[in-house]
């Protein structure tokens, strides 16, 4: 048998194999199933959420509990109350300024009621703020009051800095609730 005959035989066999379309159906089914599985995994990978955390803040409300005329006479009490002696931290482009809420309202012009913690090379000096506030709250007896902080950033402060400052102030353990204020300054 010559080489050309072998080649012709192979071509003939290949033609015969390809002329039969009985394999088309399984191939199409397997390809469709493969495509579906691939799309399924891809979409699952896209739609899976990462791991996320929450830095909590609060909006103060005016307590107006409805009267309970039943036998129990339940009356809801506020968890904490904001008054003039609540600590307030003002965040500007240059520094933190802290004091009581009264110091930023009635006593706004009194420079001795507020404390100044400048930023270091443009970055908020949170360790020093926590240190100074701890000392100040201990001296003023504010650490025995409600653990609420009014945090008032100025308008041009980027949100990542505000979120990190809020989280860091809560991490000091001095405050449990942070109220984000605005429009005061």
């Amino acid at each position: 048998m010559t080489a050309s005959t072998t080649l012709l035989l192979k071509i003939s066999r290949t033609k015969k194999r390809l002329s039969s379309n009985t394999w088309y159906l399984p191939i199409i089914i397997v390809a469709s199933a493969g495509l579906m599985i691939y799309l399924s995994y891809t979409l699952r990978a896209i739609s899976m959420a990462g791991r996320y955390a929450l830095i909590e803040a609060e909006i103060p409300v005016l307590p107006m509990p409805p009267s309970d005329d039943t036998l129990s006479h339940f009356q809801e009490k506020p968890a904490a109350t904001i008054d003039a002696r609540i600590p307030l931290v003002l965040l500007t482009r240059d520094a933190f300024i802290f004091g009581t809420a009264q110091a930023f309202a009635i006593d706004l012009t009194n420079v001795r009621s507020k404390f100044y913690v400048p930023h270091v090379e443009g970055a908020p000096n949170l360790p020093r703020l926590a240190f100074e506030m701890t000392k100040w709250m201990d001296m003023e007896g504010l650490d025995k009051g409600p653990k609420v902080l009014l945090f008032v950033p100025t308008e041009e402060i980027p949100m990542p800095i505000i979120i990190q400052c809020m989280a860091a102030l809560k991490d000091t353990g001095l405050f449990e609730k942070v109220v984000l204020g605005g429009g005061l300054i």
Binding site: R51, Y52, L54, E56, M159, I163
Partner: peptide, 13 residues
């Protein structure tokens, strides 16, 4: 009347 909110952060692995 939503009094409680928070800022989402991505957790570091």
């Amino acid at each position: 009347r939503i009094a409680k909110y928070g800022f989402e952060t991505r957790l570091i692995k």
